[in-house]
């Protein structure tokens, strides 16, 4: 399967289509950190929220780069389960690249600051929590991007609609007093949790929530894939 993951990443990078999501990510981060300085954990919590649509879009672009017939050749060669998995893993690896850029970016532009008062989080703790927040956003973004990919939606219009509805839903259902917060991945709840002290139970709940949301969306992706070539 790793050979297929490498093949898909190579196809994604060599076509130059990787450039658009990366530039969009940098632009978003530039706007986010252009306004002032914040504690790392707090800043990264918001960064994970704003990167969610970029990560989902990048996943769609990566999966759509490969011609349909080439995807079918991969199904014949490695079987359907490994073909699905290889696409998702390739998207997750590409997403990790963007997450690393998001973690380094604020230090380059002076968007984050160290602890100024006693009792505030140290920089390593803030960075670790920031990494955690981005890693929580990634599975949901990959799942949403996969659901918006051409093999599922069949047309560019439906693809954009799925992507947009997913992102808007994630923000609308994720607000503080939402009646159905579990309909969205826990992006905004994670960002809110990172403002103050984070109890272990909350971290565990948010992690489980993020993985469960991604699993439900991915099961939809796999169900539809099973019916389509």
């Amino acid at each position: 399967m790793s050979a297929l993951v490498r093949f898909r990443l190579a196809g994604f990078l060599r076509t130059g289509r990787a450039l658009a999501p990366v530039l969009a990510g940098l632009l978003t981060l530039g706007i986010l950190y252009g306004g002032g300085r914040a504690q790392p954990a707090e800043a990264y919590g918001v960064s994970a929220v704003v990167l969610f649509p970029v990560l989902a879009w990048q996943t769609k672009v990566l999966l759509d780069v490969e011609p349909d017939v080439q995807r079918r050749l991969a199904v014949v060669t490695v079987g359907p389960a490994r073909e699905y998995a290889a696409g998702l893993v390739a998207a997750a690896v590409a997403g990790l690249g963007l997450v690393m850029v998001a973690l380094v970016f604020p230090w380059l532009v002076g968007g984050v600051t160290g602890p100024s008062l006693p009792g505030e989080r140290s920089i390593p703790a803030g960075v670790a929590l920031g990494l955690w927040a981005h890693l929580l956003a990634l599975p949901g973004a990959v799942a949403l991007g996969a659901l918006a990919s051409r093999v599922i939606t069949r047309s560019a219009g439906y693809g954009v609609a799925v992507l947009t509805c997913g992102v808007v839903g994630a923000l609308v259902f994720g607000v503080a007093k939402s009646a159905v917060p579990w309909l969205a991945p826990p992006l905004l709840p994670t960002a809110r949790a990172l403002v103050g002290p984070l109890p272990g139970s909350t971290a565990l709940l948010l992690s489980g929530w993020a993985l469960a949301w991604a699993a439900v969306v991915l099961s939809g992706y796999v169900r539809v894939r099973a019916r389509r070539a």
Binding site: G11, R14, T15, E66, P67, Q70, L73
Partner: peptide, 12 residues
Amino acid sequence: WVPERFPADQPF
């Protein structure tokens, strides 16, 4: 499997 049309639109 040899498809009817080989997917030549690939950067390899």
